[in-house]
């Protein structure tokens, strides 16, 4: 059974503009890391935002882990979807330090459990020494890892990553790519990743989907 099913989704920003995503469908299996490739402006970020519930599709349905998230009559709010997202520039809360950032999504856990989970995540992304730092005191790569840890901490059913490497310099990219791949494998995460760089996708993903401006065509 498909873990994530996106069916015939159409989306546009404003009524009079042409759709950014037109009748797009795809599926993901559990534990699969899928890359979405496309030039900028091709609507790939919008696709992630639709899955996350930050935007509302005009048509179509999205199902995650056997639960209908959105279709013609139904809309599950962002906070109830159990989706993790790493934003393009990470969106780390500047007023919170690393630990507080990671713990942010763990409000439902008891204090002890929360502490444990944060520790676990810090170890996973190897930032134990930076626990009390604030985002602006971290390097780009470190910020990315915090963002990843924060998204993974509440154990989301799916992780969405928007251009995870765009803010990193090239020399770091290779090592971070493999690092990320390992982390995702370790966490057995289903992951939808968006990039304009085919090399990123190749290095991390199990398979890729190319999305184009006019019509999306899926390739296996």
């Amino acid at each position: 059974m498909n873990f994530v099913a996106i069916k015939h989704v159409t989306f546009r920003y404003a009524r009079r503009q042409p759709p950014v995503i037109d009748d797009f469908s795809c599926t993901l299996n559990k534990g699969e890391v899928v890359g979405i490739l496309g030039a900028s402006g091709s609507g790939k970020s919008s696709l992630l935002r639709l899955v996350a519930g930050l935007e509302l599709p005009e048509k179509g349905s999205i199902m995650i882990d056997g639960m209908m998230m959105v279709n013609d009559g139904l809309y599950v709010d962002v906070e109830n979807r159990g989706v993790g997202m790493v934003f393009q520039d990470y969106a780390l809360f500047p007023h919170l330090n690393v630990v507080e950032n990671i713990a942010f999504g763990l409000h439902k856990l008891k204090r002890a459990a929360r502490k444990e989970r944060v520790q676990e995540m810090l170890e996973l992304v190897q930032l134990t020494d930076y626990a009390k730092r604030y985002p602006h005191e971290l390097s780009g790569g470190q910020q990315q890892r915090v963002a990843l840890a924060r998204a993974l901490a509440p154990k989301p059913s799916i992780l969405l990553m928007d251009e995870p490497f765009s803010s990193l310099d090239a020399s770091l990219k290779t090592s971070i790519r493999s690092e990320l791949r390992q982390i995702l494998r370790k966490a057995e995460m289903t992951c939808l990743l968006v990039s304009h760089d085919a090399a990123d996708i190749e290095a991390i993903c199990d398979r890729s989907i190319r999305i184009q401006k006019e019509m999306a065509e899926a390739t296996a």
């Binding site: 996350a52 930050l54 962002v78 109830n80 159990g82 997202m85 809360f93 942010f104 924060r150 998204a151």
Partner: peptide, 24 residues
């Protein structure tokens, strides 16, 4: 994006407001 990040982390609209927007 801060509010959005907060909401993907499972905090509702109101909570996001108090925990993220207000401090910022």
């Amino acid at each position: 994006v801060y509010t959005e990040a907060s909401r993907t982390l499972g905090r509702g609209n109101t909570k996001s407001f108090f925990k993220v927007e207000l401090p910022l």
